[in-house]
Design a protein around this nucleic acid. Structure first.
Lengths: 198, 198, 198, 198
DNA sequence: GTTTAAGCGAGACGGTACGTCAAGTCTTAAA
DNA sequence: TTTAAGACTTGACGTACCGTCTCGCTTAAAC
């Protein structure tokens, strides 16, 4: 989807929040991150690209991190939702594969990595990232595993959180440091830590 | 060791690189990172704190990342060197525990986390971090495991790199996102992935 | 008028150019030139003294030379305007005397001398000085003499420009080199080069 | 004469002042002034160009102004010495023409203009310029005119200094501001102010 | 002869100012 | 009331020179 930049000016809505402006900001942020990296993702640049005044951004988002979180939440839900009904071995394995694909090959995955990185630099980011993204998803992931265990589809060797971290952590770690993430890594970890009857 | 700031002026070494200035910069960078975080770790602040001219920093380091790498390399070697002789189960387990301790409780460990985070934002950082720190250590870690396997002290379920990432990744992932790292996490992962005869 | 420094903060004008900031810069530049000379007239110092951000200066003036030109144009018009109606011998002689007084005794005259000096070092300055100050005034000065000739009040021995330079040049030359400018110099030159019937 | 740069290293003279280094500095300063203007005439650049250590410059010259004065004194004596024997109308007129030619067409004349300009910015420069260059030459110029008067070759309308300034000033003024200096200007001034029997 | 002393190229050092960029705050005017 | 526009202060960026300093070398004069 193209940026809203250099297009016929949007119709202004006057009194109401301008949905077009909101979307233009989200897309601009997304595009800039993918195209130029986090370092050049500045509020000025987003405003320029989105054809929006800086003040409009500051009015609605407390920081660029929250902009990214908004896009991340929407994109994650589209690209690899946590299965809420089926809990077969395959659907669980598929979910983790989906996560790895998102993080390593989907441009939108860059947003998650950038936010994790930023969380280290900035406690405020860590808090937002947890409360708005990581924690709610972790809740659903725990439910997924719990249902899988009850159905005998998986049998985790460690406690639930440790198990999820043990699969997710190595993928994120390699992605963050710019190392490749081997195709079979997730499967190997799954087999070792979750596969039933092993 | 305190910063060199507000102390009697160093003796100048004339034509040669000033070792005291080098150390003052490394310590200032370290201190600032721990005290104020990566965001406020600016070249100006380092120079101010170290009592050193900005130009002196630019003369010897191409970026603040390289300053941090210098301190990280020195500190890691002191705090949790990769064992190069013994390769017992305990020394290997101890090494991973040392890593977790460094990353979660040692102030110097903040430097590693900051660099991993920065590597995501900046490919140049990723390259330096690998070539000067991660890769050389990984080499030693592989040697450590190889010797351990030959001696029957450990028996990895996955290939060497995947095994190391499987232990290190979750720790780093949790540390980065500001989550606590449970005491037993490393041991649990070790038991599951490396413990012999399991 | 004192510099705006260490005063209650100006009221900000928002979207419009801040006139108070503009004046503060002009006065600061003027004061610094008179007090500390051209060498210490830096953009940083002007900003500091005016209580204004450097960026505000760079936004409105391409160089410190243009700042000085702004003050010079305003001051010259106040202190020794070119007579535009009367063209008697006395008013013409008075104009040249006014010029000499401005250059040698008026603090604001330092600005003109500094700009002439800078014009030698910097062709860009020469261009601005001519187009914004010297040339427009020279036009008026020629008109003044032309009217004086027609009225029989003066009778130049040389062509118009040469005559004006012959009066102005020696004064500037002596002022620039730090020599005193004798009281009678202008009158002597006027008598020799312009006085009618000689 | 080429700069000493990028040449086989000079033979060092050991204990004695190195004449080659002295000349290299003078030529480098001269060349840089002509080629790049006063603004880029820095001590670093002179040292670089002359193939000389900064310290060598600081050892022998208190400032770059003194370097320029050294070259100016040598060049002036070569290019337009004050006549010390003949004092005919033609030799006096020729001297002033020589001055105008030096200042407007000789590259070495740039040095004089630069120093006059700098004198305005810097009282120290004004002092040196007077005591080492302007005043000694003025002495000789006065002698020249005095002899010319006694011989009936010239008859100044003003006092000696005013007369000299009245010829020199306009030329310098126009040269400084970047205006052209018309061929006949000096002659016209001479005729008006010095020509006998007028 | 050997020592001493100075000149030299080289270059590190603490500084100051440069001109640019983005941050986040604020005000106006139009919709 | 929301928006685009844009002026404002703040502060860091990386660079260029400043003037001081110390090093290691070379040479001429003093001993």
């Amino acid at each position: 989807m193209p940026a809203a930049n250099s297009q016929p000016p949007r119709v202004r809505s006057g009194n109401q929040r301008d949905e077009a402006a909101r979307l233009a900001v989200l897309h601009a942020a997304d595009d800039l991150l993918v195209e130029h990296g986090f370092a050049r993702l500045t509020i000025e640049a987003i405003a320029r690209r989105a054809g929006v005044a800086k003040q409009t951004i500051y009015r609605w988002w407390p920081s660029k991190v929250e902009i990214l979180l908004d896009t991340l939440i929407e994109d994650s839900e589209k690209r690899f939702p946590v299965p809420v009904e089926k809990s077969t071995e395959d659907s669980i394995r598929g979910y983790f594969r989906g996560f790895a694909r998102f993080v390593t090959r989907d441009p939108a995955g860059k947003v998650l990595l950038a936010l994790i990185a930023e969380a280290q630099h900035n406690p405020e980011t860590a808090r937002s990232l947890h409360s708005r993204y990581l924690d709610p998803r972790r809740e659903l992931e725990r439910d997924l595993l719990t249902r899988g265990i009850e159905a005998g589809e998986v049998s985790p060797r460690l406690d639930l959180d440790a198990t999820i971290d043990a699969v997710v952590g190595p993928v994120v770690y390699r992605a963050l440091t710019g190392a490749s993430v081997p195709r079979g890594l997730v499967d190997a970890l799954f087999d070792e830590l979750l596969k039933p009857g092993a």
